[in-house]
Design a protein around this nucleic acid. Sequence first.
DNA 1: CACATTTCTTAAACTACCTTAATCATTGTC
DNA 2: GACAATGATTAAGGTAGTTTAAGAAATGTG
Lengths: 158, 158
Amino acid sequence: MHRIKRNTILLSQGEICRYTFKVVTGCFKSYVIDSSGKEHILQFAPEDWYISDLDSLVNEKPSVLFIEAIEDTTYIRLTKEELQSFSKDEQNRKLVNSVISLQNRLVALLSSTAEERYFDFINAYPSMINRLPLKLIASYIGVTPEYLSEIRRKLKEK
Amino acid sequence: MHRIKRNTILLSQGEICRYTFKVVTGCFKSYVIDSSGKEHILQFAPEDWYISDLDSLVNEKPSVLFIEAIEDTTYIRLTKEELQSFSKDEQNRKLVNSVISLQNRLVALLSSTAEERYFDFINAYPSMINRLPLKLIASYIGVTPEYLSEIRRKLKEK
DNA sequence: CACATTTCTTAAACTACCTTAATCATTGTC
DNA sequence: GACAATGATTAAGGTAGTTTAAGAAATGTG
C-alpha cells in the first residue's frame, strides 16, 4: 500500500507506464495536455477504481496521459504481470468495463451539448459533485470553467 | 460465413446484441442516432476487424448502437460463449485494442480541432479515405459534411 | 438513356462555446 | 490573522462549427 499527497503526479506524458493503480482512499485523475497547454480529463478514479495508461503499460510505449492525485490518496499498484495473473473472468470484466465507460463518454461527446453532458455527469457520479472543484468537472465534460459557470447560472434561473 | 448487402442493418438501437461480428470482406460501421436524429459514427470495421456493442453483449441490455454494412459484406459471427472460448491472451489483446482505440478517439475529440482530427483520420486509415464517402468521414470525426467540405477546400488552397 | 435519389459544394446567417480580463470568494501558509 | 495563491463568477467580444437552402455532380434504377 502506498500513500501520496494531493497534486502528486504518478505518471507523466512521455514516461512508460509500469503499473495499474487501484485506489484505496482518495482520488486520481488521468488527463492529457494539448498543444496549447490546456488540460483535458479522461477519467476520475475514486475508491476501488483502477486507473492506468493501458496502451503504454501493455505495449511499453511512452504514455500520452498524466495520472495525478487530486486528494491525499492511498493506493495499491499492480504490474502488468500481476494484472495478468488475475483470473480470466476478472480480467475480462475490468477490460470490458473500461471499453464501456470510454464508449459512453465518446457517445456523449459526439452527440450531446455541454449542458446535457453536465447532467449526465451529475447522474453518473452524484457523489463526486461535491468532492470536485468546478474546474475539474469542466475539464471532464469538455468545456472551459467559465462556460460551465454560465451553464450553472442558467440552470438556477429556471 | 454470412453474406449481406450494403445498407443492411445487423443490430438496431434497443435490441440486445447477441454477437460480435468479424468482417471477412467489406465494411461495417457502428453508430448512434442522437435526439435530433443525427448519426454519429463510433467505429468502422473493414477486413479482419471486430465490431459489436460490448455493453449490450456482455450485460444483455438494450444496445445504444446500430451496426450496418456500408459495402456488400461477408462476415463471421461469434456468440458471447464463443468469444469466451478464445485463449486468455487473445481475448485480452482484442479488449485492450478496443480500449486503446476508444481512448485515442476521446483524446482527439477533447483536445484537437476538426481539421486536426481529419489529418489524424487520414493518417490512421489511409486506405479508407478513397473507400468512404465524405459524409461518413465527417460523421466519424464529429462535424457536419458541409464543414468537412469547407476544410478540404481550405486545404487545397494552400 | 432518362429520371430519381443521393452526395457534394458553396454561401450566408446563426449559435454554442471560447478568450480575455476584471472582480470576488475561498483556501493555504507563515 | 494577513497575505498570496488559487478558484469561481460575470461580461464583452470573437471564432469554430452548424443550419438552412440551393445548385451541381455523381450514382442508382427501370
